[in-house]
C-alpha cells in the first residue's frame, strides 16, 4: 500500500492503494466517480476511457502508480452540466441506447476533436474503433462527432 495524490477533474484526492490498482477502480470505488465503466479489464472495449493530460487512456489497465502528476479527466469532468460540444451533439443526435459504453465513447470523441477539429469518417473510425458499443450506436456516434466538429 502507498499514498497517491491524484488530480481528478481539477480536485486533489489523496488515495491509499496498492501500486498495481487500476485507475478505473480508484475512480469508481474510492473517489465515487461511477460514470467511468468497467467492461473488460484488459483494454479491449474502451468503456473505461478517461483522459490523462488530455490523452485518452484505458483506465482499467492504467495503474495508479503510473498516473503521477497528470490531470485525470473523467466524464464527470468533461463538463459539469453536459455543455461540452460532444455531449451537446450526443443529445441532439440521440446517440445512447443502453448508455453503458457512452462515457467512454464521449471521452474518446472529445480527445479526437481536441487534436483534430474536423475529422474525416476514416479518422473517426480510426480513433473510435477501440470503443465497443454492443447496442450498435456507431452510426449516430459518427454523426454526432461531425456535428460537434461543426458546432464546436
Amino acid at each position: 500500500m502507498a499514498k497517491f495524490t491524484l488530480r481528478i477533474n481539477g480536485t486533489r484526492h489523496e488515495v491509499d492503494a496498492t501500486e498495481t490498482m487500476p485507475l478505473l477502480w480508484v475512480l469508481r470505488d474510492f473517489v465515487g466517480l461511477t460514470g467511468t465503466k468497467y467492461g473488460c479489464g484488459r483494454s479491449q472495449c474502451g468503456a473505461c476511457t478517461v483522459h490523462l493530460d488530455g490523452e485518452p487512456v484505458r483506465s482499467c489497465t492504467t495503474r495508479i502508480s503510473t498516473v503521477g502528476a497528470r490531470e485525470v479527466t473523467t466524464i464527470e469532468g468533461l463538463s459539469s452540466d453536459g455543455s461540452h460540444p460532444v455531449q451537446r451533439a450526443w443529445v441532439t443526435e440521440q446517440v445512447p441506447q443502453c448508455g453503458y459504453c457512452q462515457s467512454g465513447q464521449l471521452m474518446a470523441a472529445a480527445a479526437l476533436l481536441d487534436k483534430n477539429a474536423s475529422p474525416t469518417d476514416a479518422e473517426i473510425d480510426e480513433a473510435m474503433s477501440r470503443n465497443i458499443c454492443r447496442c450498435g450506436t456507431y452510426q449516430r456516434v459518427r454523426k454526432a462527432i461531425h456535428r460537434a466538429a461543426k458546432e464546436g
Partner: peptide
C-alpha cells in the same frame, strides 16, 4: 413522434445509475 428521450442527458454526463454504479 421523435421527442428527445428522457435519459439522454443522464447518459452523456455519466449520471445514469447502472447496477454496477449502485452505492
Amino acid at each position: 413522434t421523435d421527442v428527445p428521450q428522457v435519459d439522454t442527458q443522464l447518459k452523456v454526463t455519466g449520471q445514469a445509475t447502472f447496477g454496477i454504479d449502485v452505492r
